[in-house]
Structure formats: C-alpha cells, structure tokens
Write a protein that binds this DNA or RNA. Structure first.
Length: 822
RNA sequence: GGGGAAAUGGCGGAACGGUAGACGCAGCCGCCUCAAAAGCGGCCGGGCAAAACUCGUGUGGGUUCAAAUCCCACUUUCCCCACCA
C-alpha cells in the first residue's frame, strides 16, 4: 500500500534543511558565470497574499532554473521599510512605527520562507536600518556636492490627507498615488534632485533596453516627453522687459495674434495696466487655490487681457498679452505665442475671446487660403510670412530659427515634460536629509564622518505638521563649519530614494566604508533579470535608471549604464474574478494556502493558471487541480523509487515499445519546454507545466501496462530533476528517497535529447487546395514522391482530385503535402 | 484627443505561416464502494442519430499553395499619457 503524500511535513522538513545547509548562498569569487535575478523588494505591509506569491514564484523558478543550468545565481531579498503606512499605524493606534515595521518584516519573512523560496538570506537588507540609510545620506551628499540635489521654492503637489508633498510621478490623475485624495498646489521650499540633467540620456538609452517590455519603454518616453523647437522673445511695448516663449512650430510665428502667459508668470504684475489690474488680480487669485486637476483637464479655457502689448520680433506686429489658465508656469518659459490658425488650443481661446485668426500655413500644392473651421495643425507651405513665404514648414522652422538667432532674439532649444524629482517629505518615518541650517553659514552639509544622522526614537506622531520639526533634541544642533548654533533639516527623504539603489547594496550588504565596493559590483551588476509590477514604470524604474547613470558617471559602477538588463512585469492575481482587498475580506493568504494545499501546489498553480504577465484568477477549484497533480506525481513515483535511483540519467535507457518511446519523449518534451521558456525569457511556464501533466499521464499509463519497463524507472528518476524549479519540496523528497545524498537543487538540469524527441511515426497532413483531406501515418523523412503516391491512394484525396489537373505541390517535410489542383 | 497591448469552446489557456482548441477547471457517462469521498476510464466548439461532409479563432477586406498567426480598416476591452505650446 502506497503512502499518501504528507506535504505539510515534507515542505517544513526541506525548508529547514535548505536553510541549515545554506543551499542558496551566492559566493563572491566563483568561476561560474553570474546571473543576478531580482524581484522588486516588498514594502512590509503586514501579510503576504497569493499576489505576492506569484511574483516570488516566477522569480524563484527563474533563479532555480539558472542554478541548475550552471550559473552562479544571486537571488536576494530585503525590505522597503520606510514609508507612510507605518506612520499612519502610529497615528491610528499609537504603535511605534519602528515596532510596527519590524513585526511586519518578521511575519513576512516567515511567510516568504514558508514558500520555500531560494533566497540568499545572508544578503538581506532593511532600508530603515541606520546601517542602510546612512548610505542614503551619503549618496544624497554626493548628489548635493555635484549640484544634483538643491533646495528651491516652487509650486509643488501637496496631499492634504497624507500631509506631505509629492513628486510629479506620484500624482495619478491629479490625486495622491497612495491615498487617492486630490492633490493641491502650494508654494513651498523643497529639496529636488536634478533628474532633468539626465533627461536626454534617460530618453535616448531606452532604445538599447531590448529586454524591456515595449509598453514600459513607451511610458518612459512619454513621461520624459522631449520636444524640440525654438525659444525666443517678444518685447513688451513701452517697457524694457521681454517675454520669452517656447514653440515647436516656429514656422507659424507670423500667425501669432496674441501672447498667452501663465497666471504665475513673474511679469504679470509688472506689465498689467492700471485699468486691467483689478480684473487680472481677481483672475489670478481665483486660480491660486485650484488643484492641478481642476486647472487643467476639467476647466474651460479662460483668460483676461493685461492691457499690455508685445511686439513680434519678426513681423513687428503688435499683439495683446493675455493671462490665461491654459498655460503652465512650470513648462518652457511659462508663456506661449497664440497662433489660433495652427493650434487647437489657441483656436478655441481666440474664438471665445474674439481674437483674430491669421492663417500663415496652407495645404501644400493648393497655396490658397482656406476658411478655417478648425485649426490647421499639419505642416504645409508658408503664406503671408515675409521672407519665408513659400517655404515648407520644415524648411521654415530652421530658416526662422536661424534668423531669430542672427537677430539675437532666440535660439533652437528643447523642453522636457519631465520635472526635477521632489524628494522632501514632511513626515517622520524616513531617512533624515543630512543638511543643517546656520545663521552664519547658511545651508551646510553634514560631514560624512557624522553620518548617519539618526532618526530619533519616541517622537510623538500626531499627523499635524512635520514630526521632526517639533523634536527640539533633533532639530537643535551645531554648525559643522563654525560650531555655532544651527538647526537640522526636518524633512525626510522620499522612500523611492532608497529603492533607487538597493539592488547594489545586496552585492555588498555589510560594507561599512562605502555603499558598495566597486570590485564586487563589477562582478555582479547589472541585474540580469528584474521582476516586478508595471505600476513602477515611471516611478522606481525611472529613478533607478537616473541613479545608475549618476553612479556610472562617478565611476562607481562599470559596464553598461543601465541597472536592469531585462525586465518582466508579472500580472495581478484576482480571487473569483475580483480584486483582492482586505476590506472585501477576499484576500487569499499564504498561510492558509500553504496549510490547506501546500506551497508546491500553490506555486504550480500561480505559474499555470495564465501566462505570468497576464492577470490570473485564483479559484478553489483551480488550485485543487494542482493539488491533484502533486498527489499524482507522488503516487506515480513512490513505488518505483528504489529502482529509479539506480538508473542513469546521463543517457537514454534502451527501450523497445512505442509506449516506452512515447514516455521518453514526454520527459524530453517537458525538459525542452522548461529550457525554451527560460532561454527565451518568456517564462511561459504554464506551457511547461502542461507538459509535466502529459509526462505524468504517460508515466501512469505505462506503469499500468508495463511496470517493469526501464522507461518507467528512468522517467521516475528524471521527474524530480525536471520539476525542481517549480515544485522544489516534493522534488527533493523524491530525490532523497531514491537514495541521493545531495539535494536535487544542486543537480544539473536534464538537457533535452534529440533522439528522445524524434518520432518513429508521424502524421503527415495531406491538403487539396489548402483543405485537409487526409492524414497519413508515415516514417520520418518520407520523400515527397512516396508521400504523393500514398496521398493519391486516399479516397478523400481522390474524390477531391477527380477531374482536376494537379498544377502544383507544396511539400513541407514531415509536416504536410498540399496539392494545388483545378 | 494621443499612444500602447489585446480579442481562440461554459472558463483559464495551447498552437509564434503548415493537424485549431494541447493541458487544466467546470460539466456529463461509466468503473470501484453498502454508500459517499478519493481514485480510475470515457465524452466534452456548432450543424448531423452517426459517418461523410460542413461551418468555426471579435467584424470586414488583403497577402499566401496554406492565416488564430502577416498586412489594412473597423468594433470592443484593458493600460498609459493628456491644455507640455
């Protein structure tokens, strides 16, 4: 009587054993080729559910495959431990954020171990450890020294609910990415990182990211948003002031009939006439409190005439200056020339306010002015444009730009949608920004030997104002330069700062002298395969690329200047078609699943239910299919273990019957699938696992008909090797019971053997005019002539060929014969 | 408004120019059992009692000896950006 498989005790046993033996340590100096596979580090929110488990199941399968293929695999794990939820727990329940975070980490670490994942825990990092955030501060100071970290007052995104500012990337549809509240605009003095200095390189280098999903690259391109054009100035009439404008359509400059400036434009108060002052001030005031969302997508175009006029530097025409709600202060120069004939927005605005519409570009070939029902926005031929009349738009753009340059009025330039990264946060649970303010010396960097600036404990967190600003012991300090009294910066860093470089710290996690040693990084970086959610396309993934390019410029990393060679976005997991959420009480947790189904079955199901990049639906019926599979594997192997262990996997066993050959073929088809899905980086292990189903079905069948066959023993022996990356516990248990002393995870993966994949007999499809009329069972390598002879003997083929003349034959060896006849 | 991805049985999906629907889930029939569960065997796109035949991969065209697969247009869904001049 076969024993039933007790997944609970087996899974527990192997998790302990692997850890005792440090089976997944990645040694630094090693002759093998390196492979760095990384899953995005989790925020320790409390409990893991099967959605997290999907991410780790993919990464772990990839890591285990590569280990068995002979690579030295670096597969680390850590904790993105600073952030607002810890602080909100403190506000709501009076728990110390540090205690809350540490408890969550302990629990989630237990759960990740419970999954039997192959992480090298000796490299674990926790970003809220002073030993980690010290290097955050150190890196901030290096950015500061090079002018890439700076403080300035600017209109910023303010979330009234989370009571902090947000980076542009963290505002989604005008709302806070974390809590969903509408974001307000405030003028505040804040720390920024000058990511815009890297805008060109961040954009251009996307072309070389062959291993990244197209949509992610497109999102980054859109987000960076480079536009090339010209910047030039209109002189303000009766004044020595000038208003700069940026345009991508300088060919339409003769069609400018007004100037539109942003309400925050610094010249507004200077140029407005006394008569218009009241109206303009009211208009500006009405917009000041509006959120970005209200000011842009939701509002109609509006504006007020300033009373002032500007002079077009080329046509010398006099045009009115309007303050409008549709020009952004933060982009370009904060002012645009209004060309209603050739810009949809300007057309709208001109219609509404009765401004003239002057067409200066016409359809090429027609050369006739057409009455405009809408803006004519495509390129064409210039009319009424002085010396430039008759030129194509394209030629005019360079000619006009040259003229503006010659006149000293302007030049070719480019603008980016990307803004500098706002990294200050008015919150407690983050890395303190290592700057002090001194009455005598101003802004002073904390010297390296005084790092880390420690985050004080026991700070009251009420949700009102910046907690650190109220902590006198923390705030009051002495100036590192003059020794006089000084105050510390009370803001902390955006948590995306620490996650922009953590992948390098895993390489050298306990270095106390530098964030990482250049030699070790040269050995391991960049990350070969990165796995994580698509929601970070313009957040973490953009910031990390910026940091890595900076590190590269400093000579701290060598080789490619991109941190992640290949990127894979896993899909979500739904439960019965619905999004899992705590409030709906429909979260499928890892603990319950491990207890009721086992983690091997859970991992197999997560990989099997859909291709990994797609959204998968967790159902109780679905997981039971994989539980059945695990049990089938056990029952198919258990009675044959002793014999199986004595067979050799180094070569194919001698077999005779078609059923035996079929089983060997099923073994090697599965091996080939696992190899192909790994090598192609498609990771469609759903297809591989389906091949395991066929493998075990074929094995079970042969066991019933010919239990003594050497093919049975061979197939049983090979099974744990092949499923090890996907169901690691049962694999090692079977392997051990076969008499092997060493873990199956140290074995080489079984390479598919062409001889086993070859068929003795195959189906050759016979088509007449592209329609299937017969299927022939033939030996491989059958000649075209022999196939034709057999085909013409088929009744179905004869019926179709009757009375027709064979005009052409298409023969695909071992696949099909198509007879074209009429 | 601009851009990206996708559409295959009751469901998830397989097939990456050459046998559509592998594999699994659900369902139906049978075996085993006193019975149930588990397990095992069979059926499972539509039309037909069945075979033959025929229709069939969102819709319409095209390329090809041959299209789920390549191209064009449309429809729908999802995602991203969105007054960026």
């Amino acid at each position: 009587m076969a024993q039933t498989y007790d997944f609970r005790s087996v899974e527990r046993k192997w998790q302990q054993r692997w850890e005792e033996r440090a089976l997944y340590r990645a040694p630094d100096d090693d002759g093998r080729e390196k492979y760095y596979v990384l899953e995005m580090l989790p925020y320790p929110s409390g409990d893991l559910h099967v959605g997290h488990a999907k991410n780790y199941s993919i990464g772990d399968a990839v890591a285990r495959m590569h280990r068995m293929l002979g690579f030295n695999v670096l597969h680390p794990m850590g904790w993105d431990a600073f952030g607002l939820p810890a602080e909100n727990a403190a506000i709501a329940r009076g728990i110390d954020p540090n205690v809350w975070t540490r408890e969550n980490i302990a629990n989630m670490q237990r759960q990740i171990r419970l999954m039997g994942t192959s992480y090298d825990w000796s490299r674990e990092i926790t970003t809220c450890d002073p030993a980690y955030y010290r290097w955050n501060q150190w890196l901030f100071l290096r950015l500061y020294e090079r002018g890439l970290a700076y403080k300035r007052e600017a209109p910023v995104n303010w979330c009234p609910h989370d009571r902090t500012v947000l980076a542009n990337e963290q505002v989604i549809d005008g709302a806070c990415w974390r809590c969903g509240h509408a974001v307000e605009r405030r003028n505040l003095s804040q720390w920024f990182l000058k990511i815009t200095d890297y805008a060109d390189r961040l954009l251009d280098d996307i072309d070389e990211l062959d291993g990244w999903p197209e949509r992610t690259k497109t999102m980054q391109r859109n987000w960076i948003g480079r536009s090339t054009g010209a910047q030039f100035a209109f002189a303000v009439e009766h004044s020595d002031r000038k208003i700069g404008v940026f345009t991508t359509r300088v060919d339409t400059v003769y069609g400018a009939t007004y100037l539109a400036i942003a309400p925050e434009h610094p010249l507004v108060t200077h140029i407005v006439t006394d008569k218009q002052r009241n109206a303009v001030e009211q208009f500006v005031e009405s917009l000041r409190s509006k959120s970005e969302l209200e000011r842009t997508s939701l509002m109609e175009k509006a504006g007020v005439f300033t009373g002032a006029y500007a002079v077009n530097p080329l046509s010398h025409e006099r045009v009115p200056i309007w303050v409008t709600n549709y020009v952004l202060a933060e982009y370009g120069t904060g002012a645009v020339m209004g060309v209603p004939a050739h810009d949809e927005r300007d057309f709208d605005f001109a219609r509404k306010h009765g401004l003239p519409i002057a067409q200066v570009v016409v359809e090429p070939g027609s050369d006739l002015e057409t009455p405009l029902a809408a803006a004519f926005v495509t390129d064409g031929r210039l009319i009424a444009s002085g010396d430039f009349t008759g030129m194509s738009s394209e030629r005019a753009r360079s000619a006009i730009t040259e003229r503006l340059h010659a006149l000293g009025a302007g030049e070719a330039t480019k603008n980016f949608r990307l803004r500098d990264w706002l990294v200050s946060r008015q919150r407690y649970w983050g890395t303190p920004i290592p700057i002090v303010y001194c009455d005598r010396d101003g802004e002073v960097a904390v010297p390296d030997d005084q790092l880390p600036v420690r985050l004080p404990a026991n700070v009251p967190i009420t949700g009102e104002g910046s907690p650190l600003a109220r902590d006198a012991d923390f705030i009051n300090t002495t100036c590192p330069k003059c020794g006089g009294p000084a105050t510390r910066e009370s803001d902390t860093m955006d948590t995306f700062f620490e996650s922009s470089w953590y992948y390098l710290r895993y390489i050298d996690p306990s270095n106390e002298h530098v964030p990482w040693s250049a030699e070790k990084v040269a050995q391991w970086a960049p990350v070969d395969q990165y796995i994580g959610g698509a929601e970070h396309a313009v957040l973490h993934l953009l910031y990390s690329r910026f940091f890595y390019k900076f590190f590269h410029d400093q000579g701290w990393v060598a080789g490619p200047n991109e941190p992640f060679t290949r990127l894979f976005h896993q899909g979500f997991v739904l439960y019965n078609g619905e999004k899992m959420s705590k409030s709906h009480g429909n979260v499928v947790g890892i603990d319950e699943t491990a207890e009721t189904n086992g983690v091997d079955a859970m991992r197999l199901f997560l990989l099997y239910v859909t291709p990994p990049e797609d959204t998968g639906d967790w159902t109780d019926e679905g997981i039971s299919g994989r539980v059945r599979f695990i049990n089938r594997v056990w029952r198919a192997c258990e009675p044959f273990l002793e014999r199986a262990g004595k067979t050799s996997l180094a070569d194919l066993p001698p077999v005779e019957t078609p059923a035996e050959k079929e089983l060997l073929r099923a073994v090697h088809v599965a091996a080939k699938s696992a190899m192909d899905e790994t090598g192609s980086r498609r990771f469609h292990y759903n297809a591989t696992i389906a091949k395991f189903d066929e493998y075990v079905n074929a094995l079970t069948t042969l066991e019933q008909n010919a239990p003594d066959s050497v093919a049975v023993a061979y197939a049983v022996h090979a099974l744990p090797v092949l499923i090890a990356p996907f169901a690691p516990h049962i694999a090692d248990e079977l392997w051990e019971r076969m008499g092997h002393a060493r873990s199956v995870h140290l074995e080489p993966y079984l390479r598919p053997d062409e001889r086993a994949l070859a068929l003795d007999e195959l189906t050759l499809v016979v088509q007449v005019n592209g329609k299937i009329r017969a299927r022939l069972q033939v030996a491989p390598g059958i000649s075209e002539e022999a196939a034709l002879e057999l085909a013409l003997a088929q009744g179905g083929v004869q019926a179709q060929m009757d009375g027709k003349h064979l005009r052409k034959r298409i023969f695909v060896p071992d696949k099909l014969l198509n007879l074209v006849a009429n």
